[in-house]
Simulated scan of single mutants.
Amino acid sequence: MSNILDLIKHIESDIITIRRTLHQNPELSNEEYETSRLVQETLTRYGIEFQSGFAETGVLGIIKGDKPGKTVALRADMDALPIQEANQHDHTSKTPGKMHACGHDAHTAMLLGTGYALQQLKDQIQGTVLLVFQPAEENAPHGGSQKMMDDGVFAKYQPDVIYGQHVWPYLPVGQIGIRDKEMMGASDRFSVTIRGRGGHASMPQDGNDAIIIANQVISSLQTIVSRNVNPLDSAVLTVGRIEGGYRYNVIPDKVYFEGTVRTYKPEVKDKVKKRFHQIIKQTVEAFDAEVEIEYLDGYPATINTPKWAQQARATAQHMLGDEATPSLDPVLAGEDFSRFLNQYPGAFIWLGTKIEDAENQKPLHDPAFKLNEKALPQGSMYMARLALETLENLQEKE
Rank of each mutant, 00 (worst) to 15 (best):
E12G: 02
I15L: 08
I15S: 03
I18E: 00
R20I: 10
T21F: 07
T21G: 06
H23Y: 05
E27G: 02
L28T: 02
S29N: 11
Y33T: 14
R37I: 12
E41M: 12
I48T: 05
G53E: 09
A55H: 02
E56W: 00
E56V: 12
G58I: 00
V59F: 01
I62R: 06
I63P: 03
I63V: 01
D66L: 11
P68E: 15
T71F: 00
T71Y: 00
A73K: 09
L74S: 09
A76N: 09
A76I: 08
A76G: 09
D77P: 01
D77V: 07
M78A: 02
D79C: 06
L81P: 01
Q84R: 13
N87I: 12
N87Y: 06
H89E: 07
D90H: 13
D90Y: 06
H91N: 11
T92F: 00
T92D: 09
S93V: 12
K94V: 09
K94N: 14
K94I: 07
P96H: 09
H100V: 08
C102D: 07
T108W: 00
A109I: 04
A109K: 02
M110H: 03
L111P: 05
T114C: 05
T114W: 01
T114E: 05
T114F: 04
G115L: 03
G115D: 05
A117T: 06
A117C: 11
Q119S: 14
Q120K: 14
L121M: 15
D123G: 03
